[in-house]
Amino acid sequence: MNRRTRGILVSLMRYVAVIFSALVAIFPIYWMFSTSIKLPNEWVATPSVWFPSRPVLINYQFIFSQAYEYTIGRRPEEATAFYSFAWSSMKPVFDSLILSTFGTLIALFAGTLSAYVLSRYGQKGAPPPVFPLMYRMFPPVAIIVPVVIMYAVLKLIDTYLGIIILYATLTVPLVLWLMKSFFDEIPREIDEAAILDGCSLFGAFYKGVLPLAKAGLAVTGLFIFILDWSDFMGVLLLGGRNVVTIPLKLAEYTSGHGELYGPMAAMGMVAVIPPLILGILIQKYLVRGFTFGAIKG
């Protein structure tokens, strides 16, 4: 075998490996998508249905209508007529968006400010404080019980404010750790130059350092948003009636009416959209952010 054929073979094998890993990564998403357009009898058929015999939208229609009974057995044409769009069905999506957005913003605001202070005014070379991470060392169930009791007293159960506060407090320590490592990599002289240029202490942070930590802020924001977006435990125990998020709605599809895999997959597809849009918006920061600071590796 000469050098050239060997080179071709090596690159061929490389492509095969890349394509294989890409397939492995994409397959679950494909399965979710295909299930979301399958008819009920194909959801869990044996042998598996790899490609829907007849793509339909009834699963989407179901989740966005007021219907509570899935019309198994009806012909798709009938089903389509049965389900009509209702704004109230969008509630889980809106609730998830409101809670995750405000939870993320508050955590970013508080966490970034404290991270900056710890980075600049903390003891030089001291390790970042561990105690804010204490929450994270317990299983969520362990801390949620006292939280439920506190919330009951404060009348915060099943309120937006209550869950936003919960999300913000649980994620602030992560923001603090991530942002501190970003700030630590920005030389102190930048702050000092800004101060000598006439900035106040806050001005040095806001105009001098923060613009340099934009990538870190974007990545941290996305990370926290996804955490809040996928929370189930918090909203299960503290919400339910007034506050219903996408993960909670998803759980509904398993009970009572049997396992509604189609609507689950459809809701899953909907749930992917906001983080995806966010990811695309901050794409130019992502690579830099992921290869810099604490998220690295």
């Binding site: 002289e189 930048i190 000092e192 130059a193 000598l196 900035c199 613009p211 340099l212 934009k214």
Partner: peptide
Amino acid sequence: ASHRDVAMIFQNLALYPN
């Protein structure tokens, strides 16, 4: 420091890279 009206050129220059 912001009111002393003193300029300093640092060893690493501390230019704003962005």
